[in-house]
Every structure is written in structure tokens, then in C-alpha cells.
Design a protein around this nucleic acid. Structure first.
Lengths: 203, 203
DNA sequence: AGGATGGCTATACTAAAGGATAGTTACTGA
DNA sequence: TCAGTAACTATCCTTTAGTATAGCCATCCT
């Protein structure tokens, strides 16, 4: 099995490469940036799996992924990242990535993930993807605590009056919160605000 | 590595067992129902991985999963199914399953998935879990085509007037559709209906 | 032909949402 | 202590949503 790994951090790249190479019959080619990776792909033909660091020179977000996919004859190309968020991972998979590997994953899992992707499956660690529930709520800073409580009520389809009762407020106050919260979220009304909250994984 | 596979279909169980056994150092114990599986687990100590058929006698939905997890000392227990839906798979993972294997997956992927789960990772085929986007829209039959168009507008936070303009209808007609569609979805109002549509993956 | 059905429209009404302005309380930081 | 700010409330008003009832028209079914 032929694998290419591209990462600008030498230590990271070489240790991962060595580890993957412990799998019998697997050869790993290293590259330090996207240009080198593309060149290697063109030269040594399509790889069974190409792994790209998301934060590497030349990547330009997911633009590099598309280039690599094209160069590799649409064979599996996966993304590695130590910093990227869940939404980036989702976007990568949407854009045709064979998988997404956070650098926090265990070495043993990495080996399995590599086999997986090389076999044509799509891989993403469920535990990582499930983070959407806790993390990444810019909402947490953007909205006040009251506004967030009201937003939860909105998402349940509650009327202002009901929300007011639940939070022990007057109805007008809830209206005010709905108005300001909608403004902050660039929502045109309560329904839109609820949808934005849902889409962002806040709910 | 010790694996237990429990499935009431003999052919399925035995072929899968044989295939997994081709992996060196792996022994597979078969069981035909949940009771036998639990007995085997108690007798032969915890397994590195237990695979349970979702539709097998004794399972009672996800109740069997909890029993098996307890018996196996909380070591990995995965669910196999040929019929279960994405929502069942999600519920299983939520309930602590080590993974979800649709019977439509390839044998090679199965082997990787087994290694994965035995290593303590959580597994679910992304391609299967992503089905929610196309399938499972009971909405398609439940709602009329007009109602679905209106529902899309709702999800964008549009006012009845705007929806009416876009669909070249009168505002009252849109109101009617919103009302009937909300009734069909058991939604209490437009916001709730939009949220239900979003949650069900309709949007 | 008759009847059921689905989609559309009209009128009329009540309830709720949305918006503006102004004022109270309480807490925080210079 | 004073200014600023966040959360809350009040009053007033306009717009929109939601409900009900009734009628029109085309289609599909038997």
C-alpha cells in the first residue's frame, strides 16, 4: 500500500510516517507542503491514500484538498489537523475528503483509520465529530445568558408568553430579548433565529 | 483478540465469524440470541468486542445493548443490523455502543471496523450516517408538494407574504398551508414546524 | 354522472409578534 | 461617587400569524 503524508512539521510528519510504515507492505512518502505533495503524486502515480495537513503551506483551506484529489485521480485524500474545528471537518468530508484525522487521536486508531480510508471508506472519529454539542458556540460570547435561555425557548416553538412564564419574566422582556438576539444573529425573525441556532449546533 | 458475535441468522453469523477469524490472533465465539451471548460473556470473561444483531431475539431494541455492556464489563459492544435506520444507529451510539455496522458494508470495511472498535474507538460508517439527507423523509408522503414548498420558506424565516410572492399564491393560502402542515407535523406553530423539519433532516 | 379530494381564494376575526420610547434597578469600573 | 451598562419593565402602536367558515375549480375514481 502506498501512502503519502504531507505536513510542514518535520517531527510530526516523520513519526507518523514511521508509525504507518510499521504496517507490513506499506510504504510512506513524505512531503513538507502542498506543492511537493502534488509533485510527488504526479511523479509516483496515484497513491492509495494521501494525507494532508490542513494548516500546511499551500493548502488555502480546502482548495488544496481539491487539487490533491484531482492529482491523485480521485483516490482517497484525507485531512489531518491539530487545530481545525468540527465544522471544518464536516466541510472537508463534504468536499470529498476520505476522512478527517484530529491530531489528538491515538496512534493505534490512526493505523486503523489509514487502512479504512485506503479501502475507500470515509472516516471521521465519532467522538470528535460529536463535539459540536459542547464547543464552538460563538453564541456563548455573542449572546447574553438571558438571550440564550430565550433562544432555547424559541427553538421549542414556545410563545413569548410561555417563555416568560418559564423564566419568570414579563412578556415584553422576552420580546426585547427576541429582538436583540435576532439582531445579533442577523435573523429576520424568531423562526429564522431558531433555525440559525439549530444549524450552528447550539440546540 | 477475543470477539463474540451474536446473530440469529446462522448463515450470516457463521460467515462473518469465519471472515473475522481470518485476522491472525483473533478468536470468534458465536451466539444465536442475546441470552446465549450473555451466558457466554459471563462464562468466558469479557470479550475485546461483542457484536449484537439489533433484530435478534432478546434484544428488545436497545435494552439488550445495556445488558451486554454490563455483562462485558463495559468493554466495547457494537450493533449490527440490516434494517435499522440512521436514527436507531444514533440512539445506539448515544446509549454507549462501540459502533454501528449496517449489513450493507463491505467485508474489508468490517474487518477494519472490528479492529477499530476493539481498540476502544467508536465506529460508524460516515456514508451510512449521512443518509439522513436523502432518505427517511416520511415528509415526502406526509406532506403535499405545496406544503413542502411552504415549509422550505418557513425554514428560511420568510413571512407568509414573502412565501406567497415566491410561490405565486395569496397570503391566506400560505397561512392555510402553514396551519395544515403544522398539524401534520404536530408542531405548535411555524417556528416549531421549521425546527422539526430541520431536526428530521428535511432541510 | 356523481362524489370525494386537493389546491386555491375570500372574508372576518382574535391572538401574538414585532417595534419604539422611556424609565427602574443593580452592578461594575474609573 | 459618578458614569456606564445590562437586565428588566411599562405603555403604546402596527404588523403578522393563526383560526374559522365558506365557496370555487380541477382532477381522479368508480
Amino acid at each position: 500500500m502506498k501512502v503519502l503524508i504531507a505536513d510542514d512539521h518535520d517531527l510530526v510528519r516523520d513519526t507518523i510516517a514511521a508509525y504507518i510504515q510499521t504496517d507490513e507492505g506499506t510504504t510512506v512518502s513524505p512531503a513538507a507542503n502542498l506543492q511537493d505533495a502534488i509533485a510527488l503524486i504526479s511523479q509516483d502515480g496515484p497513491f492509495d491514500l494521501v494525507l494532508l495537513d490542513f494548516d500546511m503551506p499551500g493548502m488555502n483551506g480546502l482548495a488544496g484538498l481539491a487539487k490533491a484529489l484531482e492529482a491523485n485521480d480521485n483516490k482517497p485524500v484525507g485531512i489531518i489537523s491539530g487545530t481545525a474545528s468540527v465544522s471544518v471537518a464536516e466541510a472537508a468530508l463534504e468536499a470529498g475528503a476520505a476522512g478527517f484525522l484530529p491530531k489528538t487521536m491515538s496512534a493505534k486508531s490512526l493505523l486503523n483509520a489509514v487502512r479504512f480510508m485506503a479501502a475507500g471508506e470515509t472516516f471521521a472519529p465519532v467522538s470528535f465529530m460529536a463535539q459540536r454539542n459542547e464547543a464552538e458556540h460563538e453564541f456563548d460570547t455573542l449572546l447574553s445568558s438571558r438571550e440564550k435561555e430565550v433562544l432555547v425557548g424559541l427553538s421549542k416553538g414556545q410563545a413569548n408568553k410561555e417563555i416568560a412564564r418559564d423564566l419568570d419574566l414579563r412578556e415584553v422582556t422576552v420580546k426585547l430579548h427576541v429582538k436583540t438576539l435576532s439582531k445579533k444573529l442577523n435573523a429576520r425573525n424568531r423562526t429564522h433565529a431558531a433555525m440559525i441556532a439549530k444549524e450552528s449546533g447550539f440546540i
